[in-house]
Measured scan of single mutants.
Amino acid sequence: VTLFVALYDYEARTEDDLSAHKGEKFQILNSSEGDWWEARSLTTGETGYIPSNYVAPV
Rank of each mutant, 00 (worst) to 15 (best):
I28R: 02
K25N: 07
D17L: 08
D16K: 15
N53F: 11
V5E: 12
G48H: 01
A20L: 15
T44A: 01
P51D: 06
Y8N: 06
L3E: 10
F4A: 10
K25A: 07
Y54G: 08
I28V: 08
A20D: 00
A39F: 14
V58F: 09
S41R: 10
V5S: 02
A6H: 01
H21S: 11
V55W: 03
I50C: 05
E24F: 03
D17Q: 15
V58P: 03
K25C: 14
V5R: 01
D35N: 09
G34A: 13
A6F: 08
L29Y: 06
G45N: 07
P51L: 06
R40V: 10
A39Y: 06
S52K: 14
T14Y: 15
T14F: 14
D35V: 09
T2N: 12
K22P: 05
Y8W: 12
P57F: 06
S32H: 11
D17I: 08
A6S: 05
L42M: 13
H21N: 08
L7C: 12
A39P: 00
D9E: 07
R40S: 04
Y54H: 10
Y8M: 11
P51A: 05
K22S: 06
I50D: 02
N53I: 10
S52H: 08
K25L: 15
G23I: 00
V1A: 13
T47G: 02
P51M: 06
K22V: 12
G45K: 04
T2C: 15
Y10P: 01
V55S: 00
N30V: 08
E24M: 03
D17C: 15
N30A: 08
S19H: 10
H21L: 09
Y8C: 15
N30K: 08
G48M: 03
G45H: 05
A56V: 13
G45R: 03
S32M: 12
R13W: 07
Y49L: 14
A12Q: 06
E46W: 06
V55E: 02
T2K: 12
D9A: 06
A12N: 04
G48V: 04
E33N: 15
V58G: 03
T2S: 11
L29M: 07
Y54I: 15
A56N: 04
L18Q: 01
L42S: 03
D35P: 09
D35K: 08
L3A: 06
D17R: 13
F4K: 03
D35R: 07
L7E: 05
A20W: 06
Y49G: 03
V55A: 03
L18A: 01
S41W: 02
Y10T: 02
P51Y: 08
A20V: 15
L29I: 11
P57D: 04
L7I: 11
N53M: 11
E15I: 11
T2P: 14
F26D: 00
P57H: 05
E11Q: 12
I28D: 01
L29S: 04
W36K: 14
A6T: 05
Y54Q: 08
R13A: 11
T14L: 09
F4H: 08
S19A: 08
T47A: 06
V55R: 00
E33T: 12
F26W: 03
A6W: 04
E33G: 14
K22Y: 05
A20S: 05
P57Y: 04
E24L: 03
L7S: 01
F26I: 06
G48P: 00
A39C: 08
N30P: 05
I28L: 06
S31G: 09
D9I: 05
F26G: 00
Q27L: 14
A20E: 00
W36E: 04
Q27K: 06
T43L: 12
T14K: 12
T44M: 00
E46K: 15
T43G: 06
E38I: 15
F4D: 03
P57G: 04
V1I: 12
A12P: 11
S52I: 06
E15Q: 12
T47M: 08
L18M: 10
I28P: 01
K22W: 05
L29P: 04
R13N: 09
A39W: 04
A39T: 00
P57E: 08
E46G: 07
E46H: 12
G34T: 12
L29K: 04
H21W: 07
A56L: 07
L29D: 04
A6N: 02
Y54V: 15
A39D: 01
V55C: 05
N30R: 07
T47L: 07
L42Y: 05
A12S: 09
S52A: 13
V58N: 04
V58K: 01
V1Y: 14
Q27C: 14
P57S: 06
V1R: 11
P51R: 07
T14A: 11
V55D: 01
W37H: 03
E24K: 00
E33W: 11
V55H: 00
E15R: 10
E38K: 13
R40Q: 08
D17H: 15
N53E: 10
L18R: 01
W36N: 06
L29G: 02
K22M: 09
A20N: 01
S32E: 10
H21I: 11
L7Q: 04
D16M: 14
W37K: 02
W36Q: 07
S19Q: 07
V55G: 02
E38S: 07
G23Y: 04
H21D: 05
Y10H: 04
S19M: 06
S41M: 03
K22G: 03
D16S: 14
F4I: 07
F4Q: 04
T43K: 10
A12W: 03
D17P: 00
Y8Q: 09
Y54P: 01
I28Q: 01
L18I: 12
A12G: 10
Y8V: 08
F26V: 04
A56I: 12
A20R: 01
K25Y: 15
E24C: 05
W36Y: 13
V1K: 13
W37V: 10
S31K: 13
V55K: 00
E11M: 10
T44I: 01
D35Y: 13
G34N: 11
W37G: 00
V1F: 13
S31E: 08
Q27M: 13
A12T: 04
E15S: 13
S52L: 05
T43R: 12
T2G: 12
R40M: 12
W37T: 02
I50H: 01
T47Q: 09
V1Q: 13
T43S: 12
L3V: 14
